[in-house]
C-alpha cells in the first residue's frame, strides 16, 4: 500500500514537471528576447521603434512600422484568399464528399501541411512570381505582397481545413436531424445550423492560421521582395498596392541577424517582441470574440 502511494506521488510529480516544462520554455524565451531588446527600447523608446517608418541600420534608424504593416497586410490578404477556400474544403469533407472522395482529398490536404516552407518559397519564386510579373504595371517585379499572400494562403489552408472539418463533425447529429426534419435542405442545414454550431472550433482554426501566417518566415523572404517600404500603389490604380514589395517582421529578423551587432541586434530582438505581442493580441481578441458570440454552447 505504502509503495503504491509512493509510485502514485512520483508519477504525479513527473507529470507536473513535464507540464511545467513547456510553460518554463515559453517564459524563458520571452524573458530572453525581452532582455535582449531592452537596449533598443531604452535608446529609441516605443515611439521611436513602432512609430517610425525608416529602417536604416547603417544610419542608426530603426523604425519597424513598415514591417508591422507588411506582416499585417500579407496576413490579411492570405486570410481573404485562403479562409473561404479552407472552410469550403472543410464543409465539403465533413458533409458532402462521399467516403471514397474523402479518402483522396483529406490526405492531400494534410500533405500540404507537411511540405517544408522553403519548398513553398521555391514554388513561389519559380512559378508564382513570373506569373505575377506578367501583370503590366510599371515597377512590378513579381516579388511582393500578392505573390507572398498566395503562397501564405496555401500554407494556412491545411490547418484551417482540418480543424474546421473536425469542428463541423463534432456538431451533434441531432442538430442536423432536427433541421432536416423541419424541411430545411442540406445546404440550409449546413449554413444555418452546422456552421454556427461549429463557430468556436472554426474560430480556433482561424487563430492558428493567423498565427502560422504571422510567423511564417522562409517562404516570405523568398517571394515578398524584402524592401523596407510602406506598401503603396505603384501607379494611379490603388489596387497596385498589392504588387508592392514589403518586408515582414519575421523576414527582418532572419535576413539581418547574421551580421547584426549592438543596437542593431537589439532592434531585431525588439522586432521579435513586437511579433510576440501581435500574436498574443490576435489570440486574446479572437478568443474574446468567440466567447462573446457563443454564450451557452461553449
Amino acid at each position: 500500500m505504502q509503495t503504491k502511494l509512493k509510485v502514485d506521488k512520483a508519477v504525479k510529480a513527473i507529470l507536473l514537471v513535464s507540464a511545467s516544462f513547456s510553460i518554463l520554455i515559453v517564459i524563458s524565451i520571452f524573458v530572453f528576447i525581452f532582455r535582449s531588446s531592452l537596449p533598443a527600447f531604452k535608446e529609441f523608446g516605443i515611439q521611436g521603434l513602432l512609430g517610425e517608418l525608416t529602417w536604416r541600420p547603417a544610419n542608426g534608424m530603426y523604425g519597424i512600422l513598415a514591417m508591422v504593416v507588411g506582416s499585417v497586410m500579407v496576413t490579411l490578404m492570405a486570410l481573404v484568399l485562403g479562409v473561404p477556400l479552407a472552410i469550403a474544403a472543410a464543409i465539403f469533407l465533413a458533409e458532402i464528399a462521399p467516403r471514397g472522395v474523402q479518402a483522396v482529398v483529406r490526405p492531400a490536404v494534410q500533405l500540404l501541411a507537411g511540405i517544408p516552407s522553403v519548398v513553398y518559397g521555391l514554388f513561389g519564386m519559380v512559378v508564382l512570381v513570373p506569373l505575377v510579373r506578367r501583370i503590366p504595371v510599371t515597377g512590378n517585379s513579381g516579388y511582393g505582397l500578392l505573390s507572398a499572400a498566395i503562397v501564405l494562403a496555401v500554407m494556412i489552408l491545411p490547418t484551417i481545413t482540418s480543424i474546421s472539418e473536425d469542428a463541423i463533425r463534432a456538431v451533434p447529429r441531432s442538430y442536423k436531424e432536427a433541421s432536416l426534419a423541419l424541411g430545411a435542405t442540406h445546404l440550409q442545414t449546413i449554413f444555418q445550423v452546422l456552421l454556427p454550431a461549429a463557430k468556436s472550433g472554426i474560430g480556433a482554426a482561424l487563430i492558428l492560421g493567423i498565427g502560422r501566417a504571422l510567423g511564417e518566415t522562409m517562404a516570405m523572404i523568398m517571394v515578398i521582395g524584402n524592401s523596407v517600404i510602406l506598401p503603396a500603389p505603384l501607379d494611379n490604380n490603388p489596387l497596385t498596392v498589392f504588387l508592392s514589395q514589403a518586408r515582414t517582421l519575421t523576414g527582418n529578423i532572419a535576413v539581418e541577424i547574421n551580421y547584426a551587432s549592438g543596437l542593431h541586434a537589439s532592434a531585431l530582438f525588439a522586432t521579435g517582441v513586437v511579433l510576440f505581442v501581435l500574436i498574443m493580441l490576435v489570440n486574446v481578441s479572437a478568443r474574446a470574440i468567440i466567447h462573446r458570440g457563443n454564450p451557452s454552447a461553449g
Binding site: 451533434p172 441531432s174 442538430y175 436531424e177 432536427a178 433541421s179 423541419l182 424541411g183 430545411a184 435542405t185 440550409q188 444555418q192 445550423v193 454556427p196 454550431a197 457563443n294 451557452s296 454552447a297
Partner: peptide
C-alpha cells in the same frame, strides 16, 4: 434537441428556411 440559438430563432427556424 433545440438548436444552440435563442428560443425565438429555434421556433422561427422552420418558417425562415
Amino acid at each position: 434537441n433545440p438548436f444552440p440559438k435563442s428560443i425565438y430563432d429555434n421556433v422561427a427556424y422552420g418558417p425562415r428556411v
